[in-house]
Every structure is written in structure tokens, then in C-alpha cells.
């Protein structure tokens, strides 16, 4: 099964997303910030990346830009708990920088799996 890279600084969110996807038989690798995520991305060449927006060290926006600098095709899902600034603004920004989809936290399991499935079969 395809590798999915999950990047989020919140361990509970990481574990939850990982479990939800593993239940769907995806292989998941995790990273706790943008730097770690980019290293994992370079090493594992995942088929899909799920990245949180607000993270320490390297945030989601920067991570998406780095990936898109050399890779225009790997689907990227941006997710955020929003709050600091109007959700839509940051998710819109992520989308304009190349995120294939955006998801607002908290989401339902089906919301996540449906988007992942759609992007991987497209």
C-alpha cells in the first residue's frame, strides 16, 4: 500500500490520523514538524502528504512551498484547527501554494478517509 506522510506537532492528532488511515490499510509515516517532515518526504517519497498549518520550527505553509518547489504532483492535504486567524485565510493560502485539499479540524473520520481515497485514486 501507498505511503502517506502525516506531519503534525500534536502527537494525539498524529496518532489518530495514523490509526484512521491504517484502518483503511494505508501505510503511514509520521513527522512532528516541517523539518522532520521534509526529511521523511525526501527519504520515503510518500504518495500523499497530510500537513498541519501551525507548527513550530517549520510551519505547514513553508513545508508545502518546499515540497512544491520540486514536486508538482504528489497530493498534499493541509489541515488546521484555525483559530489564530480566520481559518479560511490560511487554508486558502495553503491551497494557493499547491495544497490539493484542505480540512478543518476537528473532522470526522469519513471526511479524512474520503479525501485521501479520492486523491490517491485520481
Amino acid at each position: 500500500m501507498a505511503h502517506i506522510l502525516v506531519i503534525d506537532d500534536d502527537i494525539a492528532v498524529r496518532r489518530t490520523v495514523q490509526l484512521a488511515l491504517e484502518q483503511e490499510k494505508y501505510e503511514v509515516i509520521c513527522a512532528s514538524d516541517g523539518d522532520e517532515g521534509l526529511r521523511a518526504y525526501a527519504k520515503k517519497a510518500p504518495r500523499l502528504v497530510i500537513v498541519d498549518i501551525f507548527m513550530p520550527n517549520k510551519d505547514g505553509i513553508e513545508t508545502i512551498m518546499k515540497i512544491r518547489a520540486s514536486d508538482a504532483t504528489t497530493p498534499i492535504i493541509a489541515m488546521s484547527g484555525g483559530g489564530h486567524i480566520v481559518y479560511d485565510n490560511f487554508l486558502d493560502m495553503a491551497r494557493s501554494l499547491g495544497a490539493s485539499e484542505v480540512i478543518c479540524k476537528p473532522f470526522e473520520r469519513e471526511d479524512l478517509t474520503a479525501v485521501v481515497s479520492r486523491l490517491l485514486t485520481a
Binding site: A12, V13, T16, L19, G81, H84, K105, P106, R109
Partner: peptide, 22 residues
């Protein structure tokens, strides 16, 4: 204040909803 709380709460609710569902 609400913005800050909302972000943390939204993150906390991810496992609460999805994990419980699983």
C-alpha cells in the same frame, strides 16, 4: 483569546471524535 482557545480545542477534538469513532 477565543482564537487561541479555539485552535487548541479543535486539535484536542480530533482524537476525541476520530479515535472514539474507530
Amino acid at each position: 483569546l477565543a482564537g487561541g482557545i479555539a485552535h487548541d480545542l479543535n486539535n484536542a477534538l480530533v482524537p476525541t471524535i476520530v479515535m472514539t469513532d474507530i
